[in-house]
Design a protein around this nucleic acid. Structure first.
Lengths: 133, 133
DNA sequence: TGTTACTTGAGAAGTGTTCTCGATCACGTG
DNA sequence: CACGTGATCGAGAACACTTCTCAAGTAACA
């Protein structure tokens, strides 16, 4: 049986309050900063739960951390992520889906899953970068 | 000045001898097994060097390890990876390249890089899985 | 209210990677 | 070939992130 605890709600809330991907550690810090004495282990557990239920998306940052994000849809989709400010845009990729399945099939692969994420600089950060350059 | 040491050659050789992606740890074990008393730190250093020079490809496994692979081409490309045996097929993805650039541009993003990898079960592993199921 | 078993939290443990630092050794030179 | 210099090595310590452990706490249901 699953129980509802304020801790779980807090994690979900903190995730919702965030636009981009956040690391478990950052989330934990944020929660602490806002007064929740929640434990790190609990944050990890809650995030894992959310990810499994499809309420959150997770991906590995290039630095090796696990990043999480509240997802507006449970459907399979991908992300366009600003590597500077973390802004994330959800993108559809029917074409890529088809391509991935295709390529896998052509090579005899089954049960194809794929990792497709696009990193870049969002408009704002591009402008900022141009200004400072 | 860069020096040529047998250690670096050994790492490159071990990488070349491998068809799929291998973790730094695995590479270190393999080298030790074949008699090289090479240090783990050195393996990491050599791999990082190779990756920077474009002689090796690196990616994060879903488990968070860094995986490396000798690359037959320095050109940008993607991989189809068997999650069971590690077999890797290099794939071209012009369509995906275009799509990524397109999507990024449409959302005001610049300097788009992307992570596109397909994991699955290769034909052999699929057969094995079916047999054991 | 009482029972039950899921959940929590602090810290230990585990894993993968990077850093430290004295010893070593490749490379250019005399 | 011997030498000097500084890049490189290796063993282990240090780190960062994540998971596990287990006693104490508590939500859910009767």
């Amino acid at each position: 049986m699953k129980r509802n605890t304020w801790q779980r709600e807090a994690v979900r809330g903190a995730l919702d309050a965030n636009d981009g991907f956040v690391s478990a550690q950052a989330l934990h810090s944020a929660l602490h900063a806002s007064g929740s004495p929640i434990g790190l282990a609990t944050v990890y557990r809650a995030l894992a739960d959310l990810a499994v239920k499809g309420d959150a998306d997770s991906l590995q940052s290039p630095e090796g951390e696990s990043l999480y994000r509240a997802c507006s849809t449970n459907l399979h989709h991908h992300h366009l992520i600003c590597r500077n400010c973390g802004l994330t845009v959800e993108i559809e990729a029917d074409a890529v889906e088809r391509w991935a399945k295709d390529v896998a099939a052509k090579n005899g692969f089954t049960e194809a899953a794929h990792v497709v994420d696009v990193f870049g600089l969002c408009a704002a950060c591009t402008a900022k970068a141009a200004a400072s350059a």
